[in-house]
Design a protein around this nucleic acid. Structure first.
Lengths: 350, 350
DNA sequence: TGCTATTTTCAAAGCGCTTTGGTAAATTGG
DNA sequence: CCAATTTACCAAAGCGCTTTGAAAATAGCA
């Protein structure tokens, strides 16, 4: 069923039917009713491609999911983020175009998305420290919002980010307060912007307390369970093993927990672990007593915010950039406790 | 830059330029070269919406991601599946339209996707035992492929599924061979088709060996880490605790592992665990000695197969249905061992 | 060279919608 | 009651592309 058929059926012109359906005022209320009813009865919905051609708006947001064919990693936070963003799109009549590209052709992919007129706006995932995509999208003149930031990029652009530096400074301070001095950091890949900021927060906390930084305790890797496991396993076997771990995601932390119990130790007593918790739905870490002490910031919520910001930007092109900082909440769970040395000292004192 | 501008620039008609770009034979090779070059130089790409309107093909595949606003669950296998499917789409010039919908308006969402002409085909995720979407899509006359099957649906339709029954029968037999008799099953939600089949495999193995089935050992839940943890924690505290667990995904199995070590037990010795491993990228469970004994079937690979099947279906509408069964590979890891009783008996004998 | 066959190019129609620039009918006001 | 508005509707153009049917240019052959 298309417009012509529907309007023939009603004995009206296409103009009138179109206006009735799109809520224009120059149509009698009684005819609008008739039109609406007929549309519903015949399951009519305007052809998206024709509509967007006519209006010049794609009503579509592009997401590019870079996937390396080599290590085949696809970030698990992506699904939750998309779920959040998708809610907003649905509410606003936007479609979500997902482009899965080999990670070395990502730039070409953005270019094509825009020149094809396939999208009205783009969301940038996982910005690097110095991310070339920002300049690219700016050059292409397409509205975009970054989930995260890119440290070395001076230009004003829209972003929604969590305060990674502050979050990691807080959890590190939390561990220091518990008497921990040797604290390992299991961070994301070194070129990722969020990882840099988290590393900076960690360092800031140590330096503020005058605790010596041991580069041998800082790791940058893809945040897999196995990374957490292997790293912790090796560290715990050393004579000067760390007494605490800071993990950039719950996934490596699960690996750390495995290494701890494999070593015959107890998490929260012998070894403490704090994490950044993206609140992934299948790994809920909340409630009265979360398994992990964490700075929590829902990635799904971030998805909602980013999507809304982009839609606003598309609606009012002249508006100033949207820059929004989300604060992570520190929630204490069962994975942390006093450093063994401190505990011993206190017990002796009794 | 659009077709008209490009052809004016070249002093050619739109027809010729269009044909040159689309590889039609009725254009001189030298002009084709010129056209191609100009297109590249000016970063021209045909407007998707205009092109698809003219051709009548959307060149887009629809995925519907149902997300309950209540429990906010978004299946982590989705990202890996999409990554696999997306590769195929990219290679074939298809776009991927992702529709995030509240789970009670899923049917309306499919309807609209089709009547809007937004997609050429649809992929069905997570089929239920008796899934109404199959009849719906059939009625709508849109090509579709199901990832999984729907037991109670008689009609012929295209699907790609893993042999869940066989996989779970095998792992259960594997545990039985090791002497386990009380084996807990941590399955997905009861209305999910895959969960039913896995349950059937588990039961078939027990019955074939004449082992009594204890309904108190069978669980149907959303497959979260916490489900695995809580269930195992409670079971292990009982007098007649199971000596082995079969988990429908690595995620609850991680919870089971946590409960085991919290109980002061050792996985692979005191308690055995086998899983269905979807080979999620951030939870690699392979190598010489995987953490978990598993029946493995890459969901990303499944995504590729489903996508390819759908594209073929779209290309040749008359073709017979595509029904493809993927076999899961049993790989023995460190999470399984002889049942304690059997081990004791053997040791005594020495 | 002249005529047909073939290759190469083009103008125009059409995909299904929105929107502009009307006109006829209904309503208002003096 | 008739001119001036306002209301309710419509025909046609246009969005950027593909594709049909025809024309122009070139090649082939006697």
């Amino acid at each position: 069923m298309n417009l012509k058929e529907l309007s023939d059926l009603l004995g009206l012109s296409q103009t009138t039917v179109s206006r009735a359906l799109n809520g224009y005022p120059e149509v009698r209320e009684s005819t609008r009713q008739k039109v609406m009813e007929a549309a519903r009865a015949h399951n009519y919905a305007p052809n998206t491609r024709a509509k967007t051609l006519a209006t010049g708006k794609a009503m579509t947001i592009g997401h590019v999911l870079p996937v390396s064919k080599k290590h085949e990693m696809v970030n698990p936070i992506f699904a939750d983020f998309i779920a959040g963003a998708g809610e907003i799109y649905s509410d606003n009549g936007f479609d979500l175009l997902l482009s899965v590209v080999d990670d070395d052709s990502e730039e070409a992919s953005y270019r094509k998305l825009v020149s094809r007129g396939a999208v009205d706006g783009i969301i940038v995932h996982g910005p690097k420290v110095n991310d070339s995509r920002i300049a690219l999208l700016r050059e292409l003149g397409v509205p975009f919002v970054v989930h995260g930031r890119s440290t070395e990029i001076e230009a004003d652009y829209s972003w929604v980010d969590v305060n990674n530096t502050r979050a990691f400074q807080r959890v590190t301070e939390f561990l220091l307060d518990l008497g921990h001095r040797r604290i390992a950091l299991l961070n994301g890949l070194a070129d990722m912007d969020f990882a840099t900021r988290r590393g900076a927060g960690y360092l800031a906390a140590l330096e503020a307390r005058g605790v010596e930084v041991d580069p041998a305790l800082m790791f940058h890797e893809e945040m897999t369970e196995n990374f957490g496991f292997e790293t912790a396993r090796q560290l715990l076997a050393q004579a000067d093993a760390p007494t605490a771990f800071v993990a950039s995601s719950i996934i490596p932390a699960i690996g750390v927990r495995r290494a701890i119990s494999d070593a015959g130790l107890e998490m929260g007593k012998d070894v403490s672990v704090v994490i950044h918790d993206d609140a992934l739905s299948y790994f809920s870490n909340d409630g009265d007593e979360p398994a992990f002490t964490a700075v929590r910031s829902s990635v799904r919520q971030a998805g909602r915010h980013v999507a809304q910001a982009l839609i606003n930007k598309i609606a009012t092109p002249g508006a100033p950039v949207h820059q929004e900082m989300l604060e992570a909440v520190l929630a204490v769970g069962r994975s942390t406790g006093q450093a063994p040395a401190l505990r011993q000292a206190l017990e002796q004192k009794k």
